[in-house]
Structures are given as C-alpha cells and as structure tokens.
Simulated assay, not measured.
Amino acid sequence: MSEIKPYYPAKPPLTAGARFIRGFQRVGVVMACLVGVIGLITSIVVAVDQQSSASRRYSQAKCVYDKLSAGQPVKMREYDKSKIDYDESGCLGPGYGGTPTEVAIAAANPPSALESFVAPFAIGIGITAVSSALSFGLFWLLGWLCAGFTRD
C-alpha cells in the first residue's frame, strides 16, 4: 500500500470569542441538565403527594359516609353547621370537609390509579422544560455578549 493519506481539510482554529462562547454553552448545558433533574424530581414528589392526598380524602369521606349510613352521629363544624367536621367525627385525615351530599359523592368516586398524578406531573415537566431551555439560553447569550458578538 502507499503512504498517501486521504485529504481532509483542516479545521481552522477557534478564535478566542468562539472559545468563550463554547465554554459558556457547555456551562449552559450543565446548568440545564441540573435544572432538568431537579425539576423532574420535584415534579414526581409533588405528583405523588397529590395522588396520596386524593386517596386520603377518599378514605376520609368513605369513613364519614359509612358512619352516616350506619346512623352514627357525626359532628358538624363550629363555624358552618352545614358541613361535617371529619376530624371531630373520628375520621382523621387531611382536613377535608363537606355537606352530607358532598360526602356521598366523594365516597362514591374513589380516585383512579393516576388521576391526581398526571396533571401536576405534566405541569411540572412543562415548567422544567421551559426553565432548562431558559437556563441554557441565558448562558449562551451571556457568552455571546461577553465574547463581543462574534460568530459561534
């Protein structure tokens, strides 16, 4: 074989401004990833909390509904006598309260597996995506400005 090497045009060296922009872009990517990971974890935690809160509200409403169905007395709230005080009635939970009609409706509709999970998670992911993009864009813009408006 011959010693002839294929010709690849050499890339010109980067200017100082282009290096500066590239460095800020890399910092922007790292920051965007950090914002994304923190946003994802926060979205999951909030969504799980919302789903467990819905499950606790259902179990509390079911407890009061069972008491009403059995004819046991339930206590009403002091400031609004039309609403049932769940905690004072012996059904401890997140402080949910309502009229007997609202209790019957809440007890009849158990939350589905991901009913209260999807909306907070989707909103959190949307906010995370926008925040990550803004974070990257801010660092890229800062590098471009500091480099003196040079090309990438």
Results as ranks from 00 to 15, higher is better:
P73R: 09
Y58W: 12
P13Q: 05
Q60C: 12
I21R: 09
A70L: 00
T42Y: 07
A54D: 12
R57D: 13
S43F: 10
L34G: 15
D49N: 14
A54Y: 09
V27W: 13
V45E: 13
L68Q: 02
V30M: 14
R19T: 01
G36C: 09
A32V: 11
S55M: 13
V45P: 05
T42K: 14
V45M: 13
P12D: 15
D66L: 02
G39A: 11
I41C: 09
T42P: 00
T15R: 01
G36P: 06
E78I: 10
C63P: 06
V48A: 10
S59V: 05
C63Q: 01
R57E: 12
Q72H: 04
A70P: 04
Y58F: 15
Q51I: 03
K75H: 03
G17T: 07
S53R: 15
G23E: 00
V29L: 13
Q51C: 08
Y79K: 14
E78F: 06
D80S: 12
L68K: 05
G17C: 03
Y79G: 10
T42I: 03
G28V: 01
A70I: 01
A70G: 09
D49C: 00
P12R: 15
C33T: 12
Y58A: 03
V35P: 09
G71T: 01
A47H: 03
G39N: 04
Y79L: 13
V46R: 11
V30H: 08
D49F: 11
S52V: 09
L34P: 08
Y58C: 07
L34F: 10
S55R: 14
P13Y: 00
A47P: 05
K11V: 06
G23Y: 00
R56C: 02
V37E: 06
Y79E: 15
A18R: 06
G17A: 06
M31C: 13
S52W: 06
G17W: 01
K75D: 09
Y79T: 15
S53G: 13
A47R: 03
V64D: 07
S43K: 13
C63V: 05
G23K: 02
G23F: 00
S69P: 00
